[in-house]
Computed example of a mutant assay.
Amino acid sequence: MTKNRLMLGALTVVALTQAGCATQVESLPIAPVAAGTSAHDVALYFGAQAHPAVQSQLGPSSHSVRIARTTMGPEASCNKALQEALDKLISDARSHHANAVVNVTTRFHSTESTSSTDYACGLSTSAAAIAVKGDLVVLKAD
Rank of each mutant, 00 (worst) to 15 (best):
A93M: 07
L136F: 08
S124N: 12
V25D: 05
H40T: 14
A141K: 12
F46N: 01
P74N: 11
M72Q: 12
S62V: 02
A35K: 13
D41N: 12
A81N: 08
A39N: 15
N103F: 04
V138R: 13
V102D: 00
V13G: 09
D118Q: 15
G59P: 05
D41I: 07
T71Q: 10
T37K: 09
H63K: 10
V25G: 01
R107Y: 04
D87I: 04
A10D: 03
L16K: 07
T2N: 11
R107F: 05
E112C: 05
S124Y: 05
D92M: 08
A98V: 10
A39S: 15
P52A: 11
Q18I: 07
D92C: 04
T125S: 14
T105P: 01
S126C: 04
L139F: 12
S110Y: 13
T106S: 15
S124K: 06
C121P: 12
D142N: 13
L28F: 07
H63L: 06
S95L: 09
G59L: 05
L8G: 03
L16D: 08
L139C: 11
I90N: 01
V137H: 00
S62N: 09
K80E: 13
S113I: 03
D92V: 04
T23N: 05
V138F: 03
A15N: 06
L123G: 00
D87H: 09
A34Y: 12
